[in-house]
Design a protein around this nucleic acid. Structure first.
Lengths: 242, 242
DNA sequence: CGCAAACTTGATGGCCGTCAAGCAAAGTGG
DNA sequence: CCACTTTGCTTGACGGCCATCAAGTTTGCG
């Protein structure tokens, strides 16, 4: 009950991974200081305090991490959904080249690094969970490298859909074979190294093949097996338990 | 002196990062159990014991991490040089989808996970260093994602050269503006999402532009500034101190 | 209802893949 | 020391995937 009432309920469940956290550790998470902000869509995520001595937890909405090139072009590195800790790595190493932005209007909790450290020093299960979080995100980076390097546009889209569907399902945001899909075609393009024009064309062919449908900000996966086959998808890297 | 005599001297220096490790921690590293193997070029790296309960340290030679697609194609995810810990992440999370292979004949030390854990539990400086290692490699993954997504073939090559030059320099393997370059054109291709034919063409234009030269297994960087400009290179992600 | 953002579609061109052939370098065995 | 083989490098011809440019059309929001 406390789990679902607190804004950090999702986080506690997530950090549990396979086995739930010890009660004391869970209570410590639920007692984390709350600095909660609602941020409009398509805004950079920054803690107002200035220096980057906070981590953030996505409580609601979709966000992304990105890098900008000097010519103004943008590469999206990852998408984040409720329960995610997109910048946990900042606890141990600054990444000044890394931007974070909202995709939709989002509710974000900021937690001071000092509090996070206390948690991880005090509860080995949480330290372990932090490792797990960071390493799953590294594994996801590797999967994206392979996608960007060796798949064509249609396969890239299919692979991204597979990943997002399973991640959303893990936090209970899917509904049967469909899920919310707030990403614009330019977002797909910036994530997959394409142009939005070509994304549009490939979405059309995936629709015509009867693999997916995409309308009214929802993605319908008409044929999961076919989608995985197109993507050559192997879900292991996500390390989801269910 | 002990530092340079032990096979783990490079490792101790590396884990020190900005500030050298405490003497006790350093001694613990130098006392790590030695299971050293020499592995021929272009072989998979696996500890013979079977189960993946070891980390490895590259003592000499070049290696890489890669993923294979079911159609047989290969994506190289990272290159590794002496002093690197290519699979440190296996300490905390298995990555069955991740392969490791030698590029040149290499000397590799295998260290049981149990010993690594002891080290990190006993010496906070080493735990900190492990975090740093894993996060630098994640930052490198992100830089590769951006390269693969948003640079053309010539820029991708330039970016890879910049990265490898600085990393080699950090471990003292460069000589002025040149460095050993054992990678074949197919290796560049597999890392950058290209074909070896196109890599060959782009190497030719980089040579003709007077930016680099590449022969006899050595890379000469004729114009570092120009190379960085072509690559839009920002070295921060490597977190090198010098 | 009006404006802006996003989506769609066609035409055209370029980067890079594919195929193919020839060359160079390095190792092997007689 | 020299055929012979293997591996890697180089170059040309051709084609396809995807970028670019340029309309329209639709959707969403104030």
């Amino acid at each position: 009950m406390a789990l679902s009432k607190s804004p950090f309920g999702l986080l506690a469940r997530r950090l549990g991974g396979d086995a739930p956290l010890p009660v004391a550790a869970e209570r410590a998470i639920l007692g984390l200081p709350l600095i909660i902000r609602t941020i409009e869509a398509s805004r950079d995520i920054k803690y107002e305090g200035g220096t980057a001595d906070h981590c953030c937890v996505i409580l609601d909405g979709w966000t992304c991490c990105y890098q900008s090139l000097t010519d103004g072009r943008c590469q999206i590195l990852s998408f984040h959904v409720p329960g995610d800790l997109p910048d946990l790595q900042s606890l141990y190493l600054p990444s000044p080249d890394l931007g974070m932005a909202t995709v939709t209007r989002s509710i974000v909790a900021f937690v001071p690094h000092a509090e996070m450290r206390k948690l991880s020093d005090q509860y080995p299960a949480i330290a372990q969970a932090f490792w797990r979080e960071v390493l799953v995100s590294a594994a996801t980076h590797r999967a994206w490298i392979t996608s960007l390097g060796r798949r064509d546009a249609r396969q890239k889209l299919a692979h991204l859909f597979c990943e997002l569907y399973l991640r959303l399902k893990a936090v209970g945001f899917t509904d049967g074979n469909s899920m919310p899909m707030p990403l614009r075609q330019t977002d797909f393009a910036d994530a997959l190294g394409l142009t939005s024009v070509h994304v549009n064309r490939m979405l059309k062919t995936l629709r015509e093949e009867g693999v997916i449908d995409l309308y009214a900000r929802r993605l319908v996966i008409s044929d999961w097996e076919a989608l995985c086959a197109v993507a050559d998808f192997n879900p292991k890297y996500l390390h989801l338990t269910d």
